[in-house]
Amino acid sequence: MTSLALFRLPCAVIMTASLALPAAAETLRIGTEGAYAPFNFVTEDGSLKGFDVDIGNALCAQMQVECEWSAHEWGGIIPALNAKKFDVMVASMAITEKRQEKVRFSSPYYFNAMRFAALKELELDTATPASLEGMVIGTQSGSVAVTVLQEYFPESEIKLYPKLGEAFLDMESGRLDLVLESKFSIGDWMAKGTDCCAFVGEDFLMDGTIGAGIAMRLEDENLQTRIDDALAAIIANGTYDDIRAKYFEFDIRSQPRIVSDLFKG
């Protein structure tokens, strides 16, 4: 503990010094993943871009604070938030009960529905547990799609990738038959000119999913109120829809079907 305190001392000095210089603007440290296009991704020049980043920046503008962005590995993003590496996570994280034990969520800022994409050569017209029996399905480890696959598709083989892009590579090479992920991410990948694959079945949400939320630490109750208010404000003044239109041609704020309703029995 002593060594930690000693280490922090110079940092504190530097931070107070740098905060004193500008007109004392509050800085909001926002974390995201940076590998989940079009929501959050790193561009060629190394900067973070995407829907989440634009929403985060709009919230900062609304709250009149400075945004400071950082990118984190998805598998460790909740521990990073709780270890105070950053204060707010705008990373398209689906709100689930399990996650709510670890972090506090804002009200949902969009619904990130999942959908299957399959190799065209399989000529699938439905995506049900029966029709996908024995097939190899890939997704990103730690995503809610894993839970869906485990629960409803026990007869399929599941492969988990640290990054979604790697699952897409394995779709293109034919190691995977299907991929289950956010329809947005899959759509973005297809838009880049892949013609190996096509969407099958309809889109759906996890049970108990309330959509994607902005996460912060459990104790930051005030921050949540401020974020929720800012979110309501940018929805009301049209900023939200302007940002959404930059990325998607469709509404992403209405609720799709629930998975247990779709695959029951």
């Binding site: 399990k98 988990l160 640290p162």
Partner: peptide, 22 residues
């Protein structure tokens, strides 16, 4: 583990993502 093999590390990553338990 990063090329989808479920070795010890792969399982640990999976179990961690299920439980968030370090």
């Amino acid at each position: 583990a990063i090329i989808t093999i479920f070795d010890l590390m792969g399982q640990a990553r999976f179990i961690f993502s299920e439980t968030f338990d370090l």
